[in-house]
Amino acid sequence: MKPVRLIFHLDMNSFFASVEIAHDKTLKGKPVAIAGNPKERKGIIVTSSYEARAKGVKTTMPIWQAKKLCPALIILPANRERIRLASQRMFAILASYTPLVQQVSVDEGYLDLTHYLGQIHPVKLAGQIQARIAEELDLPCSIGIAPNKFLAKMASDMKKPNGITVLRKRDIPKKLWPLSISEMHGIGKRTIEKWRRLGILTIGDLAKADPLLVKQKFGERGLVLLDRSNGHDDRPVDPDAYEEFKSVGHSTTLRADTRNEQIIFQTLAELAAKVQKRLKQKGVMARGVQLTIRYHDWKMVTRSQKVLNPIREQADILQQASSLFKKAWTQEPVRLLGISTYDLIEQQYAYKQLDLFSYEKDQKEEQLLETINDIKAKFGDHAVQKGWHQNRGTQK
């Protein structure tokens, strides 16, 4: 028999907006939104307070549309330093309860509090943590309580803001299974229709689905999700997990030292494709790209640059790496090339400062890339190839 665990998932509510409201008390009770580019009417809403949400303001909504729904909406830019400091202080509070804290993003994390079992009721403990964060940081949060990470994550989403929800395995048929498949943690927005086409409309449908069919359509990942829908999740709360994913990269030693630009740029394209694949597998995007060059004489140089908006696609990574290469290359023969991405952020927290037209274009590109990735998953990475066009410095 597996030992009983007590796992909390803590999720800060409207974090970016709440940080600004805590900083400026005059904003309390008012509709507040954080936007990628608040000075532009075509900027995109990143997050909003619950007062703004009550008026229909939603994430990714253009500013002009949000203002139409809520004329009194106060729009502010994200203050990265305030957000970083608030996150740091919040996780310091969590660490005072247990060393087993796994940061998932800037505003959410898991806690393994198993050693408290028998000492204090879990709901009372959650209430103490929630009250302390509110008192010391003036920030709201929701907490999910469960025997594993998946159920705790699902529980924390069930009651916002300032919710505390318990989700035990015996509660699954009543609380979890009736939920739409779109509400299940781990299922991406772009795959929801694929699940629905199989007749899997709710989490309960997935829990009772044929494993062979799920594996055929979604591979091993599908079987993991099927297990989760039945409440099975043995993953430990790992304090080091967040640190492990601060960078994702690949490097390769060339077959021979070369000055051939076609070989060099084709190699960079292949490296960018590998990095993109790993970023997608981890569900993260990058806010920085680093290029490594090792020359024939073993001299090594690195160059890096931050990007305005988080990136993950091969073309974007390649564009940054190629730009760095052109600036850094001394025309000496190259022996090794490497591309790393850093300052990673979970996809759901990565926002782009887009105007409405490029946002729509981005959606179409995402649909195309999803189709390409489906083909590669079924027939292999070489089923679809992008070619490097040397003269234009772009892909075709």
Rank of each mutant, 00 (worst) to 15 (best):
D138N: 12
D138V: 05
L125Q: 01
T114A: 01
Y116P: 00
T98R: 01
G118F: 08
E108I: 02
L125D: 03
T98M: 01
P99R: 09
T98L: 03
G109R: 03
G118K: 02
F91P: 00
I120L: 09
M90H: 10
L117P: 06
D138G: 10
A126T: 04
P140Q: 02
L117E: 08
L113K: 01
G109Y: 01
A131L: 08
S105G: 05
G118P: 02
V123G: 08
M90G: 06
E136M: 11
E135L: 11
L111P: 00
A131W: 07
Q119W: 09
V101H: 00
K124P: 06
I129D: 03
Q130K: 08
H121E: 15
T114Q: 02
Q103K: 05
A134V: 10
P140I: 01
E136C: 10
G118R: 01
L100C: 08
Y116C: 03
L139R: 00
F91W: 04
I129K: 01
V106L: 06
S105P: 02
P122H: 05
T114S: 02
K124H: 14
R132C: 11
E135W: 13
A131Y: 04
L111F: 01
L137H: 08
L111C: 07
K124N: 13
L125F: 10
L139I: 08
L111R: 06
D112R: 01
R132F: 12
L125R: 02
E136V: 14
H115S: 12
H115P: 13
L100I: 06
S96E: 10
P99W: 12
Q102C: 14
L139F: 04
I93L: 07
E136T: 10
E136S: 13
D138H: 14
A131E: 13
G109D: 05
Y110C: 09
Q103E: 06
P99G: 05
V101I: 09
A92N: 13
R89Y: 14
H115Q: 10
P99V: 09
I129A: 07
A126E: 00
T98V: 07
R132Q: 12
L100S: 09
L113Y: 04
P122D: 05
P99M: 15
E135M: 12
G109Q: 03
T98S: 03
Q130L: 05
V104A: 11
H121G: 13
D138M: 10
V106K: 00
Y110S: 07
P99T: 05
Q128N: 14
L125T: 00
P122Q: 06
L117V: 04
Y97T: 07
L94M: 13
Q130T: 07
I93A: 05
L139P: 04
F91R: 00
D112Y: 06
D138Q: 11
T98Y: 02
Q119L: 14
H115F: 12
I129V: 08
G109F: 02
R132T: 12
D107M: 02
L137G: 04
G118Q: 02
Q119S: 13
Y110G: 08
G118A: 04
H121C: 11
L125S: 01
A95G: 13
Y116F: 07
K124V: 14
P99A: 11
A95T: 13
T114P: 07
I120M: 09
P122I: 04
F91Q: 04
L113I: 07
V101R: 00
D107E: 06
A134C: 11
D107F: 03
L117C: 06
V123I: 13
Y110W: 02
V101L: 02
K124W: 11
E135G: 14
K124R: 15
L94C: 13
